[in-house]
C-alpha cells in the first residue's frame, strides 16, 4: 500500500519561525516572549508586537490551555479537506497567555460535545518529514 501524499496546506517557515517549527517537529510547543514587557505572544516574530522591543526570547509552553472558541466545518474549504469534514477548527488560550489557531481532535464534531472554556492539551501531528502541526485534544481528567 502506497502512502498518500499530504495534500492540505503545508506551512512555509520563515527565518524567524524556523525555531518554532523545529521544536514542533520535536513535539514541543515553543512561544516567543518579550523580555521587556514580559508577555508571551503568538505568532512568533522577532520584534514584540505589544511594546515593539527587540529584547525577545523563546519559552517552552506547557501545552495546556482552554478552548477560546471553535467551529465545526461541514463544507470543506478546499478539496483536500473533504475527507476530514466534519472537523473542528479552534482557538486555544494557552496557559502562558497567547491565543493560537489549531484543530481540536479526538472529540465528536458535535456542539454538544465541545464547550468553550473546556481544558485542552497539545498533541503533535507529523504531516510531512519536515513539518509537524501542534493540535489540541480535550485534556485528560
Amino acid at each position: 500500500m502506497t502512502e498518500q501524499a499530504y495534500s492540505k496546506p503545508i506551512p512555509v517557515p520563515q527565518g524567524e519561525s524556523d525555531y518554532y517549527w523545529e521544536k514542533a517537529k520535536a513535539h514541543e510547543l515553543w512561544l516567543r516572549k518579550c523580555d521587556n514587557c514580559n508577555q508571551a505572544y503568538f505568532y512568533p516574530r522577532d520584534i514584540c508586537p505589544m511594546c515593539f522591543s527587540r529584547n525577545t526570547s523563546w519559552i517552552q509552553a506547557s501545552g495546556k490551555g482552554t478552548l477560546h472558541t471553535f467551529a465545526i466545518v461541514h463544507r470543506a474549504p478546499t478539496p483536500a479537506f473533504r475527507d476530514d469534514a466534519p472537523f473542528v477548527v479552534a482557538m486555544v488560550d494557552l496557559e502562558e497567555g497567547p491565543r493560537m489557531p489549531t484543530n481540536l481532535i479526538d472529540v465528536e464534531p458535535d456542539p454538544a460535545a465541545i464547550k468553550v472554556g473546556m481544558a485542552v492539551e497539545v498533541v503533535f501531528e507529523d504531516i510531512t518529514d519536515e513539518i509537524t502541526l501542534p493540535k489540541f485534544k480535550p485534556a485528560a481528567v
Partner: peptide, 11 residues
C-alpha cells in the same frame, strides 16, 4: 498562511 491555513482556517 503559516499558522491558520494548515488547520483549515480558509475562507
Amino acid at each position: 498562511l503559516q499558522y491558520e491555513f494548515p488547520y483549515g482556517f480558509i475562507g
